[in-house]
Design a protein around this nucleic acid. Structure first.
Lengths: 245, 245
DNA sequence: AAGTGGTCTAGACCACGTC
DNA sequence: ACGTGGTCTAGACCACTTT
């Protein structure tokens, strides 16, 4: 039973150190999204701690949606390919209870250099290459969200309009499968704005219609920002649902 | 070690039964908000289970913001009088990082009978007495939110404009202190709307300005809805911040 | 039957706050 | 010194899934 560093001013309990080790392994790609990780007992042996300590580490990671426990089967690496993950970041719900899945329609995809704002949001150098994606989100064939998505050109090399076109699934599942980038958490800043010319055409609403402006920064491991997007949501037939706990 | 009912189709682990018992005691007012509850050891003896089982029950309740643990001191009943609880339900943040506390200015308070919508939201009979409160929320003396709040007249007997005027603190801390009602969780539905005459006057913005419409239903123990409110947020100098995990 | 996560226990020791 | 929550361990048994 290794005590590790337990008395420094930066005290951290054993299970958190184990958590960090598991996270590192995850980050290094030792186990891929959707796969099982070793059993608690195996991990306990590997790290030289008791099974209960591994358990507590995994408990926290499951609460953070990094891992998924399945009784009798094992513990799995969370994946955006899992259909249940779709609405984790998309909080838009139809006014009537219609639960049809949204469709992503890529409109455009081009390269540019990071300006002030993009460089700050993505924590990259101003002038660094970025990729900008415009896409429409449809619910039951009706346009509801128009998104403008900024990505670091460095980490998303090879992302083109064709790749987007040919992908059937969520954007984040593409990022995960194709670029090995797992979106862990996000922060959204919501304001109300009037539809400009572009938005009104894309969303088929009158110019000046109030829309939700949703700015999102999405982070991967180590709180590293990897995506910045701004979405304009038409709330004629949908609303943004938020649970406060 | 009582096994209780552990094999019925409605299986529930011991710690969840303990959790239910603690919640009942909380609901019954055995310990009041802000006070300490008995130690884990005492509760273990009282319920005839091990300390670890009580611990797990309290763990979940702390995660749900029903209880607050303080190492070395004890476990406390969560309270809206705690200043840290203020921003639990108010997700509005100034564009510049100014962290001034908002002020609530009650504008009006009158009695009415529940209509269709209010009765559905508050789960009361149509025609039942309700109280409607209009109030303004100011950040640094600037009007930012205009709220219309619907409450069941039954549970909020004695709530008058005078009571609201004389209360220095959040609305929920008033509800808690004066009416013994603790707000546990809430659900918000957000849309974008244009400012009508009333809103434009109250918020000092032009008519037609896009505003956030935030409809909130707030629940107390047992998922019982006790408040329905609609707020119009001016997002000229503030935004609604949401963390997605 | 065997393996996995889930629950429960009992006991030891640590960190924090108060007396 | 004492009491509280926080951590860690070891072992038993339960529930679920697969073989």
């Amino acid at each position: 039973m290794p005590r590790m560093s337990q008395d420094a001013p930066t005290f951290s309990p054993l299970y958190r150190q184990i958590k960090a080790l598991i996270t590192q392994a995850l980050e290094a790609g030792e186990w891929r999204p959707g796969q099982v990780i070793p059993s608690e007992q195996e991990l306990a042996v590997r790290f030289g701690v008791s099974q209960g300590t591994v358990r507590k580490a995994i408990d926290e990671m499951a609460a953070e949606n990094l891992l998924v426990r399945k009784q009798g089967k094992g513990t799995y690496v969370a994946s955006h390919n899992d259909p249940r993950a779709l609405f984790r970041f998309l909080r838009l719900v139809p006014l009537d209870g219609d639960l049809s899945h949204p469709t992503s329609v890529p409109l455009d995809c081009w390269r540019a250099k990071a300006g002030q704002e993009a460089s700050r949001m993505l924590a990259i150098e101003p002038g660094a290459p970025i990729i900008i994606v415009r896409r429409l989100l449809q619910f039951a064939l009706k346009p509801v969200v128009i998104d403008e998505i900024y990505l670091s050109g460095e980490t998303f090399q090879g992302l083109t309009a064709e790749v987007l076109q040919s992908w059937n699934g969520s954007l984040y599942s593409l990022f995960e499968t194709r670029f090995g980038l797992r979106m862990i958490r996000a922060q959204e800043r919501i304001r109300a704005v009037a539809a400009d010319r572009n938005a009104s055409e894309a969303l088929k609403v009158a110019e000046g219609t109030p829309l939700l402006s949703v700015e999102r920064v999405t982070y991967t491991y180590g709180d590293k920002p990897v995506e910045w997007r701004r979405g304009l949501y038409s709330t004629a037939e949908h609303f943004y649902l938020n649970e406060l706990n």
